[in-house]
Design a protein around this nucleic acid. Sequence first.
DNA 1: ACAGTTTACGCATTTCGTAAAAATC
DNA 2: GATTTTTACGAAATGCGTAAACTGT
Lengths: 306, 306
Amino acid sequence: MEHYQLKSFLTVACEQNLTRAAAVLHISQSALSTQIKLLEEELGLRLFKRTSRGMLLTEQGRQLLARAQDVLEAADKLQQQANVLARGNTVSVTIGLNTDPNFLRVSAINQRYSQLHGNTNVIFHLCQSIDTTQRLRHGQIDLGFFYGDNREPDIEQTVISQVRTCVVIPTQLLSDDPIMSWSEVSALPWIWVENLPFFAVLQQSLGDYRTLPNKAVTAIDEQIVRELVLAGQGVAIMREDEARPLVESGQVKIWNKGWGEIPLCLGWLANNREAPRVKAALEVIRYIWRKPPSMGDGELADKCWI
Amino acid sequence: MEHYQLKSFLTVACEQNLTRAAAVLHISQSALSTQIKLLEEELGLRLFKRTSRGMLLTEQGRQLLARAQDVLEAADKLQQQANVLARGNTVSVTIGLNTDPNFLRVSAINQRYSQLHGNTNVIFHLCQSIDTTQRLRHGQIDLGFFYGDNREPDIEQTVISQVRTCVVIPTQLLSDDPIMSWSEVSALPWIWVENLPFFAVLQQSLGDYRTLPNKAVTAIDEQIVRELVLAGQGVAIMREDEARPLVESGQVKIWNKGWGEIPLCLGWLANNREAPRVKAALEVIRYIWRKPPSMGDGELADKCWI
DNA sequence: ACAGTTTACGCATTTCGTAAAAATC
DNA sequence: GATTTTTACGAAATGCGTAAACTGT
């Protein structure tokens, strides 16, 4: 799957016609045809429905086009930032986020950090728990949040908080019986996230129940889990705070035996332990996470619009 | 700039050594060497410093690696979602967001939407104002937010709100004189966002002052603007609500002649005017945006953690 | 019959690998 | 002098274009 294939995919989707798209891309129809064909083969599905009047996106193609555009956009940004970097520059402390910024209180962290250390500044960067170690080692981030334990010799860590997780069941999937056993729940379709250590916790608390859940769909990230749960596609494990609004709107129920707890940790390179920016950031984050968030406080307060 | 080059870039950065990286990638050292060289030439900067012990990321390389990893991650997600789509599926209404979800009240929108229409669900997708039209036309999004006016025959729109914008000046760049004229401000370095129509508004309100600001840096998106402003790299135009916490933390001041207002619009394909999911979503969004957000309400209420 | 996509096949470009040269500690 | 990157060049692979075949309206 190469960049030029995605660009072709996008262009064909726009033009809805191979001939015109080929003209736009300044290549021949036949070359474009094989590009699309190879891309479809690689992805293992049909992106377009071929009609006598042109190429029409399939539903699958429609959904993947959005993702393809994400890739192209990210690549654009890379190119543009390269242009920018050919001149200006910026130095700062960089913090990796393994989940949504609001939950991690980035706004409060930034505010306090820059109050205490006016000259430097914080850059937040999204990255999955699983990548944190790697990104720390190569200096892309100075500190990083991640779930679970991650004992590696060159990385130090501190537990920031315990995150409560729960099993959410879309109302569509509920049986009449209000009480469900693990065997009943595990038989339902599950929505799975690769590389997210939430399930290990559930397994612990369930103890004996060794049955593995029935993985119906493997999702890509937490956001997609939310989409799929809302669509009633399956049961999933979510953070409690994320599940709450879904419960309140009546779309899901929480399975009362499915509660778990997982540590939210903050890690940094042992070598950088004494670096001022790291020490400072660590102190700030510990301070911000000492107290639970509440209305008049932290991330909520400075999101207020009035 | 192709996918395999970025993968090579990442691997070399990880291994800090061409020879090892080549082994990981199952290609020869020489091939890898030329790949990196070509990538550097294309980007117009040096990604690595060559030492006798291997390849070390430059500061520019470090920053670009983060972006490259974003691209690779997006590509991974595309591949994974393709795998998912080879089986399951989901149907829903999709809404494009041109700026941060919290500001656009996605949580409140989702909550009300799913209360009223339990069977469908909302999928939010980030996309720049400039892309909204295109994404609407090709069905990637059913409705989309964008800034400013965008009169096109096949797209209908409604003004959702007026967004107040202001000119923020990092304290580092302030002169002693508390009152600054446009010629003084425009002479400062500016941080620019391609494709964001904030400046047109400023130009209107300033009227006579035709001097163009001194564009020091062209940033890639709003998040980077924020980073660069915090780093004191230049003056920028931001949404008022985004600027407020920066002002409160004393990092920037607002230039009092720089206030502007720009419409936040919601658009949809004229052809889809009667589609139930579009009508329903439109109604919900209008309702949510009728009243200003406040503490007990909407996006803040359901982010509460206690 | 027409507008469009797919397939076949030779050609051109790109990329790769081997091996030698250059650079740095 | 050991380790590592760069350069040179022939070989392999990949993508491209022309032209013919195919498909549905």
